[in-house]
C-alpha cells in the first residue's frame, strides 16, 4: 500500500510552506529590514501556523506520533543546530575580518539593524533546514 502522509508530515509541509511564504521576500526581494518588518514576519508566521496546523489537526483522524517521528524530529533539530552554529561561526569570522581591516561600510546607526538582519536570516535558514531535513528523512531509510 502506498504510504500516504502522516500527521507529522502534513504538519511539516505546512510549516515549510509557511516559512517560505513569509520569509521568502526577506531573502529574494532584498527589502530594507526594520524592526517593524521583523515583528510583522513573526506575527504572520505565528498566525499562519496556527491556522494551518488547526486545519490539518481537524482533518487528520489519526494524530499519534511514534518513535520514528521522534527520531526524525531529533535529526531535524541536529541539522538545524549545525546550520545555525556554522552560520554563526562564518558570520563572526566575517565580523572579525571587517573589524580587523577597518572596512565596516555601515553607518553606526545602521549597525544594529544590520546585525538584526544577519542573525534573523541565520535563524530563518536554520529553521528551514530543520524542517526540510525532517521532510526528507520521512522519505529516506533511517
Amino acid at each position: 500500500m502506498a504510504p500516504s502522509l502522516s500527521y507529522r508530515e502534513k504538519s511539516l509541509y505546512a510549516s515549510l510552506a509557511t516559512e517560505l511564504l513569509v520569509y521568502g521576500p526577506f531573502f529574494f526581494l532584498h527589502q530594507q529590514i526594520s524592526l517593524n518588518k521583523v515583528a510583522g514576519m513573526i506575527i504572520a508566521i505565528v498566525v499562519l501556523q496556527i491556522i494551518l496546523q488547526s486545519i490539518i489537526a481537524a482533518l487528520t483522524r489519526n494524530r499519534i506520533t511514534d518513535e520514528r517521528d521522534r527520531l526524525i524530529e531529533l535529526r531535524g533539530y541536529r541539522a538545524g543546530y549545525l546550520t545555525l552554529v556554522s552560520l554563526m561561526v562564518i558570520g563572526l569570522g566575517m565580523l572579525w575580518f571587517h573589524a580587523t581591516v577597518d572596512r565596516f561600510p555601515l553607518d553606526s546607526r545602521m549597525v544594529g539593524l544590520h546585525f538584526l538582519s544577519v542573525f534573523f536570516g541565520m535563524l530563518i535558514i536554520a529553521d528551514i533546514t530543520k524542517t526540510a531535513t525532517q521532510i526528507v528523512a520521512y522519505r529516506r531509510p533511517l
Partner: peptide, 10 residues
Amino acid sequence: VGVTRQTVIA
C-alpha cells in the same frame, strides 16, 4: 502496536 501506519510501511 501504537505506531503510525507509515511506520509499519517503513
